[in-house]
Simulated assay, not measured.
Amino acid sequence: MIVDGLKWMFLIIGTTIGAGYASGQEIWQFFGYESGLAIVIFTFLFVSSCHVVLTISYRHQTDDYAEVLQELMGPRLSKGYDLIIVFYLFTTTGVMIAGGGAALEYFQIPFNAGILFMCGLLLITAIKGIQGLTSINGILIPILIVSLAVVLLTFYMANVEEGYSIWTTQQRNWPSAFTFTSLNVLPLIAVLSAVGKKIKHQGEIWVASIGSGLVLGSVSFLYNESLLAAAEDIMLYEIPLFALLETYPSYTTAFMAILLWSAVFTTAASGLFGLTSRLQSAFSLPAWALAIFLLCMMLPMTQFGFSSLIGVLYPIYGILNLYLLIIILIHPFYFKKV
């Protein structure tokens, strides 16, 4: 039970920690100053959301998100949000691919070459399906989390001023917890709804939900505090993480660039998996054919640049998904009465 729960936990984290999160762009866009309380609230919201979605998926033994969405929102609204999820997954997977190209530029690999390399690996993963996706996450995510936590903690300890308090009296940015959580709700529904038939025990859901929430909440808090310490330098970098690595040896930066690319890849793979699993129920095509078509359609949008896509798309999606987040949070109370 615990082992399987950890497998789903790594899938959740791998879906959430992508180009925006691992690079620091998401953290900086939504949090920043006076955000300690916001991150605590986000942790509770995230745990609750994961538990609700996994529970519905397990109860209905689903293999795509259509049935989960219908229980949450009813037949009419679910059709509208179905289109939003497809568009969201499409655009954010394009963001991940752009982030992968940006990360490989550190190694003097041309942006477009990095994008094509990533698309090739994504196609291979799409062919292998959920088993390939969970296997990759089970290997890469623990390495990424530990390495990122060590770098952030080391940077924070070296740059924090004596007497500095991580919790200020003013916590006026707490509403950002809701938009940040809602931003991550759609990919969670798309991916977690596809594993309902694979879950064997209710305990797996608790392990996955609580574990992923605590890990993401802790890393988010540490990441935000580290970015605040380097706030003056962040604007000079496409990827804020590299501002924190400025004083580190080159091999450390290279290692983190590889891990950043890995995070981008796992989220892109999750997004592509969510799209193909949903579209397979509408079109009688194999996963590899759908994956090729989708990747070709995504290539043009990668030319807008990573940080530009993050800055424009993510806040919009965060606001649009607030309604869906509210529905998920009240669902356990409403469902018991029905």
Results as ranks from 00 to 15, higher is better:
G94F: 03
S57A: 10
T276F: 05
A126S: 15
R59K: 12
E204A: 02
V219S: 01
G305M: 07
M297E: 06
L216D: 02
I199M: 11
L313K: 06
S165Y: 03
P110E: 14
G120C: 11
A243F: 07
I141Y: 00
Y248R: 11
M235C: 10
I141L: 08
F42V: 00
V207S: 02
L322P: 03
S218P: 01
M96L: 07
I115H: 02
I127L: 10
S176F: 09
F178Q: 04
I124E: 03
G163L: 08
T43W: 02
F333S: 09
G24K: 03
E204G: 02
L227G: 10
S78R: 05
Q303C: 08
A190F: 04
I115V: 15
I56C: 03
S182T: 09
S281N: 11
N173D: 13
A194P: 02
A263V: 13
I124P: 01
I17P: 00
Y65P: 04
G74D: 09
S284Q: 12
Q25S: 10
L290Y: 05
P300Y: 04
L11K: 00
Q280T: 09
I127N: 12
K337V: 14
T266W: 04
S182K: 05
T55D: 03
L54P: 01
Q202C: 06
I328V: 15
M298A: 01
A263F: 08
D63H: 14
A19C: 04
S57H: 02
D82E: 15
C296P: 03
Y164G: 09
P300N: 11
T62M: 05
L104N: 03
L216T: 02
F283I: 13
S49M: 08
A243Q: 09
L299E: 09
C50H: 02
S209F: 02
Y323N: 07
A98D: 07
A126F: 03
Y323R: 05
Y88K: 01
F44Q: 05
F46A: 09
F46W: 10
V219P: 00
E67D: 09
I326E: 06
A287L: 06
G203N: 12
I143F: 13
L183V: 06
S281G: 10
A289G: 07
Y58S: 06
L69F: 07
A269N: 11
E225A: 15
Q280L: 04
G311M: 13
G271L: 07
Q70H: 11
Y65K: 01
T15I: 05
N159M: 11
E105R: 10
G32Y: 01
Y81T: 09
L69A: 08
G311V: 04
S277L: 06
I145L: 12
E34R: 07
A194Y: 04
S262H: 12
H201V: 07
T15F: 00
L72N: 06
Q108K: 15
I239M: 14
S23V: 06
S262Y: 10
T91S: 13
L133F: 04
S78C: 08
Y65W: 06
V52P: 01
S49A: 15
A208L: 01
R172D: 13
Y106Q: 14
L89M: 15
L324A: 07
D64K: 07
I234G: 07
V40S: 05
V207A: 03
T43Y: 05
V191E: 04
W288S: 14
T92R: 08
L148R: 03
F90G: 09
F180Y: 15
S284H: 12
T92S: 14
